[in-house]
């Protein structure tokens, strides 16, 4: 092997080591952007989440969809949702008993409010009042639905900006 080659290789190897050592030493001051997202405080939501707002309930009894007013759920503002419930075959479900809950799985807390279905709007539509989200990030909203003696649950995912 030529002497020059050895010089070049040694230089590169030492440089790499020095740079790595420097990064490790100065990581706390450099900030998280070099290791993103590993070092971000707020871990991103799992990428496999189903974010759609129309889904089949856990046991396949109901197809449920939600719409918020304003159309994307606002931060820190109490607002209303309308949910639509139909059977898997597409028949609107009347007279359902619906309870609402939810929270942030990554933070281990629930909703800041106690939202409730306050009105059966007919045609399978229900008014949900008292919705509120007080942090940006991944939220779950869960509806427990009982109609004609049949009970099923659906959990929606959404990301608040």
């Amino acid at each position: 092997m030529k002497k020059q080659t050895v010089t070049v290789i040694a230089t590169s190897v030492i440089t790499v080591l020095v740079v790595l050592a420097a990064i490790i030493i100065f990581l706390p001051t450099l900030g998280p952007r070099y290791l993103h997202p590993l070092m971000m405080g707020d871990q991103p939501a799992p990428t496999s989440l189903d974010m759609s707002n129309s889904r089949l309930s856990d046991n396949g009894l109901y197809r449920v969809s939600w719409a918020s007013d304003p159309s994307s759920p606002p931060l820190n503002q109490i607002h209303a949702w309308t949910i639509h419930i139909e059977t898997a075959e597409g028949q609107p479900v009347a007279g359902a008993e619906v309870s609402v809950s939810g929270g942030m799985p990554q933070h281990g807390h629930g909703l800041p409010t106690n939202p409730q279905v306050t009105q059966d709007l007919g045609n399978g539509d229900y008014l949900v009042e008292g919705m509120k989200f007080q942090m940006p990030g991944w939220w779950e909203v869960r509806f427990d639905i009982t109609a004609a003696g049949q009970n099923d649950t659906i959990i929606f995912n959404l990301t608040l900006k």
Partner: peptide, 15 residues
């Protein structure tokens, strides 16, 4: 960057 990132102050001090 810390405030909105690793220190996660924005959880509660947001808007």
């Amino acid at each position: 960057r810390l405030f909105i990132g690793r220190a996660d102050c924005i959880k509660c001090h947001n808007g």
